[in-house]
Amino acid sequence: MFQNIGEMLLLFWRTIQALPFAWRQRQKTLDQLFEIGNASLLMACILSLFIGGVLALQAGSVLVQRGLGNVIGGMVGVSMAKELGPVMMSILIAGRIGSSMAAEIGSMRAYQEIDALRTMNINPIHYLVLPRLLAIAVALPLLVIFSVMVGWFGGALVSAYNQMIGISFEAYFNNLRQVVDVGDVANGLIKSFVFALVIGVVSCHQGLQTIGGPRGIGRSVTKAVVNSIVLILILDYFLTRILINF
């Protein structure tokens, strides 16, 4: 994976250079946005609801025993906004969308469609990579906002209806409002934007590097997902370390 980092950075740089052509590729970008949203929204909803719920259940029972039940809202709020929302959503998108990007571009490479584009003087970075990277860079932060809100709601549901916790909606959200500020949500959005670029670049790079037929495509898909998740988790630490000061 690490020997390809240079190639991936080069692909990213070339895609940045292609940004002036973004308006031309708007229809493909919108198609990709629809694909990402349509494929991920329901899954994101279910995942976030249960993450928020589990968080409230695990921490809530311990906090209530120690008379700290009124801080559950803030704890779930910050955890979802700064960490679990962006990381879990990025992992979900790496699996769902990163794999599909690598498979689609990989099969185009394997079946000479990318060669055909090049013979027509159509740059595959403009035509294939740019719309995908733009779409995921917009879609993932939006999904994270949605995920964070659903996660908060999941935590509130469990806090209110679980007999071990028994914290009302009002108390939960009052505490959440006191603890969570815009900076916490922005923190998560910055992370998710970086993770989106990682997923887009890694997946498109793996697709473009595909060699051979169906087996090669399968290998590219696996590498795209695994490498994206590993890089997300590594970068998460460093981003947290940087953003903790703000």
Partner: peptide, 19 residues
Amino acid sequence: VMDKVRMAMVFQSGALLNS
């Protein structure tokens, strides 16, 4: 140089974009 010349290639497999 390649940008100056209009070239086309008919691939053995066709290489049509399936999407």
